[in-house]
């Protein structure tokens, strides 16, 4: 019991004194996951809107695929990206394995389907409401896609936040492609796993607390935007 309370005290000390290692790890986590979020949103949001608007052969298949990919196990994504980036892999020449760039790629692959599938759901509802009016005003499908992305922006913020939440909290993919190298590819989740197994509870706990705070913050932002959305809908 005293071990645990000591760990809590030490954890708070690390946070309060902005411990160098802690700041480095949190900073890298945020950098990797925010970059992955931006990349995944840049692909996923337009993809979601396009699937909501256009009717093409194989569309249902794409939707089923995206919905299934939402539940991709991070370790599997990590393994696939690892194979892709390893020396013998097709992208091995880039020399990206065990770098933050590899982690960004893995997390992008992991959350892009989430952002695409959720934004497609949001855009579908909006398009249902807009379709006849847009058509009446002379909008072509590509106009409709841009209109949905702009008019659905508040709901899409929540969607992107959901993607970020998944990215920052996952451990399997970044562990495999990053290698958990200190001061290079070590992020919050991989450090927690490592330090906990070593019995260094203070650092693990401090990072865990920050992770929870981030999760609450992200949800708070999402709820705020969700609230604005429902107000606008009234």
């Amino acid at each position: 019991m005293s071990d645990i309370s000591t760990a809590f005290v030490l954890a708070f000390q690390l946070i309060a004194t902005l411990d160098g290692e802690l700041v480095d790890i949190v900073g890298r986590s945020l950098f990797v996951s925010l970059t992955a979020m931006v990349a995944a949103a840049a692909i996923g949001l337009p993809l979601g809107a396009v699937i909501a608007v256009y009717r093409f052969p194989g569309r249902r298949l794409v939707i089923v695929a995206l919905n299934s990919l939402m539940g991709l196990p991070p370790v599997f994504v990590g393994l696939m990206v690892y194979l892709l980036l390893s020396r013998a892999g097709p992208l091995g020449v880039l020399g990206l394995l065990f770098t933050p760039a590899a982690m960004v790629i893995a997390q992008t692959v992991l959350i892009m389907p989430i952002i695409a599938a959720l934004s497609r759901d949001a855009m579908r509802d909006l398009y249902e409401e807009y379709r006849e009016q847009l058509c009446s005003l002379g909008a072509q499908p590509h106009h409709a896609v841009l209109t949905l992305l702009w008019d659905g922006r508040l709901r899409l913020v929540t969607v992107v936040m959901a993607g970020f939440g998944r990215a920052i909290a996952e451990v399997g993919a970044v562990f495999i492609v990053g290698g958990n190298i200190a001061y290079v590819t070590r992020v919050m989740t991989t450090t927690i796993a490592l330090e906990a197994s070593k019995g260094n509870l203070a650092l693990a706990l401090a990072l865990g607390l920050i992770l929870v705070l981030l999760a609450v913050g992200v949800n708070g932002v999402a709820a705020m935007f969700g609230g604005v959305t429902s107000y606008r809908r009234a």
Partner: peptide
């Protein structure tokens, strides 16, 4: 009425832009 999620003015401008 189907209202785009933008200002009254922007709603009118939208159709003009499309045309």
């Amino acid at each position: 009425p189907v209202m785009l999620r933008r200002s009254v003015r922007a709603n009118i401008a939208y159709g003009l832009k499309l045309h």
